[in-house]
Design a protein around this nucleic acid. Structure first.
Lengths: 336, 336
DNA sequence: CGCGAACTCGGGAGCGCTTCCAGCTCGAAC
DNA sequence: GTTCGAGCTGGAAGCGCTCCCGAGTTCGCG
């Protein structure tokens, strides 16, 4: 440690300088009642004279509140971070936290070590609330957090497990939108490449695909499962082409996979969108620059972060908000 | 607040159960000397029986150490976050912090409110160290942090200001590499589109361009300034084409700008790479998918985070590491 | 003019942990 | 058998702040 600084100003010093008791000084700081105007002003003057800043640690110890919330990310696949996803969520969260006195702590709970730490963090109330981005319902973190005695809100709802509080993007609706778009542009033999079926987003998007085709009275049996990755998309598109050479449209559950699929299609001599139309999901920045540019579904990522934070704040103040589903929207480009 | 949990286990309870004093218990926890083997074991048993977890807040208050470091990001332009940049840095940082007992706090110090908070955080030692990603030398944060009595390491060195401790990518070297590559492939009338000249990366990349051309004995006077953005790149490329219609190669200081430039070139009927070769910087994921795929310079972002954290740890433990410049490397693709 | 009600105020007891210090024990050396 | 020193030990004093409480003040109203 570097050598200690000029000692920090304490409440006692403020109180002394203002000629009041520490209790009184404390009261004006937390602007509690029962302080005369005169003393209140004296204290305030002392504070600015001395440049007093309350010690958050001491306050936390005394109040038993940490003054911080944590964003915990559990992901074995760094996929989540591909693209500004993570950053945008954080920006959203920060923007609402900025109006509070809460700090944001970050935990990448990948290893079991990370999970232990999160657990301890919660048990000792080092954080007053948790935002958890967890993909898998069988994620130990999910259960851990849910049974913790601390407010928790989920970002994205895991599969096999409906959290009490969560905000999610309308994956199912978005997938339906995308598939309907394919139908509307005249496609009839529509396939899908799904994401990981052990993630909420994976299953929801698959369901959306089925929804749309059911309504249109079309077959929903052209499906290949993949893992959201570009390589996965490549492989899945090859399978699809082999099994259903007649397909004329495909809804791909992520842009990354769509990029892989696009290449396979091109290599197979199928023109996009003339022979087969393609729509992705996520609207990653690259989607604008593929050839042809990718029709896709975009979700309000920053809003996701913002709403997670807002919901957490609500839960922390004793409210019981209902889960929130954020709208997704179709972004038509030239691949359809 | 949710209702209080089962009270947390305190050191006193552990001590009592183990039949020792609180002091002794404390000693074994921090495995300090002067505890007999017998007592040490008794305490350890009590700890695991009770499931004791030390209260970090109390410890922080007593030791005057927060047990946390902060990553502060000051950016008026969200540009920094385009692409996994931010996420990767965080991953790098987390990976080294995981082996310590330090938590990571995150501050987006955009508004002046954010700056005030960072300042207070430091003044009250809520954090034991700071990693600062700050682009501008005139960023108040930069000075604030540097004069704080807390270890600070910079990520990327700001322009007009050489921090005591920082780790940066070799922007100048990378730019030189890129430009040399242009020279090596036979280009002779090489232009550049620069980034913001009020950022370290902007000026360094410009210098690298000049370095290479000086060595090659070529003119380095075909330059247009932009701001790292795609739109900026578009505009700059137009200027360049107007002022130097004879150019046959251009080093663009960011992939985003290069993408803009690419479109302008195509629209102007210049073939890439036949008429003019293009190389970008950053190796964003999109660079692989443009047509033609973009030759670019990649920097080890995750390593950047890792090294920042490592350096911070070193400074915190009293060492005085020297600044670190991480190597960049050329990624040849079809645009050259 | 007297008496409660309603405030204002400061003392002091924590929050849970670390750490200094004085007192002890115990064994080795002579 | 005595003397010393080298560990052990637990008591107690904080770290800086909150908040309960009882005491002191003020003021309104009958």
């Amino acid at each position: 440690m570097a050598d200690l600084p000029k000692r920090q100003v304490t409440l006692d010093e403020v109180a002394e300088r203002a000629g009041v008791s520490r209790s009184a000084a404390s009261r004006v700081i937390n602007n509690a009642p029962h302080v005369s105007k005169a003393k209140r002003e004296a204290v305030q003057r002392a504070i600015s004279d001395l440049g007093y800043v309350p010690n958050a640690t001491a306050r936390a110890l005394a109040t038993q509140q940490a003054g911080a919330v944590v964003l915990a990310i559990s992901s074995d696949n760094a996929q989540v971070f591909a693209d500004p996803f993570f950053a945008e969520v954080v920006i959203g969260i920060s923007s609402v936290l900025e109006d509070t006195d809460l700090e944001l702590m970050l935990m990448m709970a990948t290893s079991s070590r990370g999970q232990t730490r999160l657990e301890q963090l919660l048990r000792t109330r080092q954080a007053d609330g948790v935002m958890l981005m967890s993909m898998h319902g069988d994620d130990p973190l999910a259960h851990l957090a849910e049974k913790a005695d601390v407010p928790v809100v989920f970002g994205g709802s895991p599969v096999n497990f409906e959290p009490r509080y969560y905000v999610d993007a309308d994956n199912r609706g978005g997938a339906r939108l995308a598939t309907e778009h394919l139908v509307a542009t005249g496609r009839r033999r529509i396939a899908t490449i799904t994401g990981r079926m052990d993630e909420g987003a994976g299953t929801a998007r698959y369901k959306g695909y089925q929804d749309a085709l059911a309504v249109a009275g079309l077959d929903a049996n052209r499906v290949a499962h993949a893992d959201f990755s570009e390589e996965g998309g490549t492989r899945a598109m090859q399978e699809l082409l082999a099994a259903h050479p007649d397909l004329d449209g495909v809804f791909v559950a992520s842009d990354q996979m769509a990029i892989g699929a696009l290449r396979v299609l091109r290599d197979a001599g199928r023109s996009v969108p003339d022979d087969v139309a393609l729509v992705g999901f996520n609207d990653i920045t690259t989607a604008r620059h593929t050839s042809p540019p990718l029709t896709t579904v975009s979700q309000p990522i920053q809003a996701l972060g913002r709403e997670m934070a807002r919901m957490l704040l609500a839960v922390m103040s004793g409210e019981t908000p209902t889960p929130l589903i954020l709208p997704t929207r179709l972004v038509p480009r030239s691949s359809t």
